[in-house]
């Protein structure tokens, strides 16, 4: 009992210290670099967000040494990462429907088409309005209709803003899917190709500490904001995969979002670019903001083909 308490206290300490530690280490790494004292170089670089909202690239050996030590209990997974409030901003002016985010997401979560946690939809708000591409995933709402209706607390809101799914708890009633006005959730009906793929590529939850194991047949899954990446200070796959820097990820508490190349102050960005949330009137309070598709970087081009035709 005492051991357990100590253990959990140690874990808590680790968890609290991790991010601060990671940031400090990242800072140290930077300092070392500047001072010319090169640390043992693994050759692999990771991007780390500093407290000032700057994105720096450091050697992965400095960060992953601690992050790899994370072995979070179920309760800790349910709690979320302390002190964080994850947020996403999608700049619709930059999306050219290249679907790299979709592919990156599928790779990250071991899903095969047609299952997409992240979809890119062709939207046109009115007849005379211009069509635009609309990347859309789970909005991790602050007033989530899905978690309310879950009969067994299998989907829940974490302190860091993430709406997660416990696929070991889910009974597959699909009520959350009926409740979600954004159709953001996906059910694993056990599509044979998918099952086979998951047997070959089992989800390594220890590494990513992902809350959504897509491989559990008969349960609901969806975008989880890649919390394993976030815990390590890395960006979600859709953000890093986008060639145009459409998707920004960040922390509301830090008031900053980044797409890996550019970093903005969240409030300033939303204010200056008239950021909005989809279906604000539903009162779901999404954590994903959109910047309207004005002053586009690319002219709108219709998709050449419909995707995911294969059953």
């Amino acid at each position: 009992m005492k051991n357990e308490q100590e253990d959990s206290a140690r874990r808590k300490f680790l968890k609290f210290g991790l991010l601060a530690g990671g940031a400090t280490l990242a800072g140290l790494g930077l300092q070392n670099k500047l001072l010319g004292e090169a640390p043992p170089d693994s050759g692999k670089k990771v991007k780390v967000l500093t407290a000032e909202g700057k994105l720096v690239e450091v050697d992965s050996s400095l960060v992953t040494h601690h992050a790899a030590d994370m072995n979070l209990s179920e309760d800790q997974l349910r709690e979320g990462i302390a002190g964080r409030k994850f947020v996403m901003v999608i700049d619709l002016a930059r999306c050219a429907n290249e679907r790299k985010c979709v592919e990156g997401c599928q790779k990250m979560h071991n899903t095969l088409p047609p299952i997409e946690y992240l979809k890119v939809k062709r939207m046109q708000d009115s007849e005379l309005g211009a069509p635009y591409w609309f990347p859309q995933m789970c909005y991790h709402c602050d007033n989530p209709p899905c978690t309310k209706v879950c009969p067994v607390d299998a989907t829940f809101k974490r302190s860091d803003g993430i709406v997660a799914v416990d696929s070991d708890r889910c009974i597959g009633c699909k009520f959350c899917m009926a409740a979600c006005p954004y159709s953001a959730r996906s059910f694993n009906f056990g599509r044979p190709q998918q099952v086979e793929y998951n047997q070959k590529h089992p989800a390594d939850c220890k590494e990513t500490c992902c809350s959504t194991k897509s491989s559990t047949v008969g349960t609901v899954s969806k975008c989880d904001f890649c919390p394993g990446h976030a815990a390590k200070g890395e960006l979600p796959s859709c953000v890093t995969e986008c060639p145009n820097g459409t998707i920004f990820f960040g922390d509301e508490n830090e008031d900053s979002v980044t797409n890996g190349e550019e970093t903005f102050r969240l409030k300033e960005l939303l204010r200056s670019r008239a950021g909005y949330r989809q279906f604000e009137e539903l009162g779901t309070k999404p954590r994903v903001y959109y910047l309207p598709p004005v002053k586009r970087q690319f002219p709108f081009e219709e998709a050449k083909e419909e995707h995911n035709k294969e059953e």
């Binding site: 009969p151 067994v152 607390d153 889910c170 009974i171 597959g172 009520f175 694993n188 609901v220």
Partner: peptide, 23 residues
Amino acid sequence: AAMGRPDRLHYLLLHGRIQSPIV
């Protein structure tokens, strides 16, 4: 018959939450 995981039916007793209309 509609449930994805009928083997977890007893979770409704173990983890049931009163805010869900299903409960």
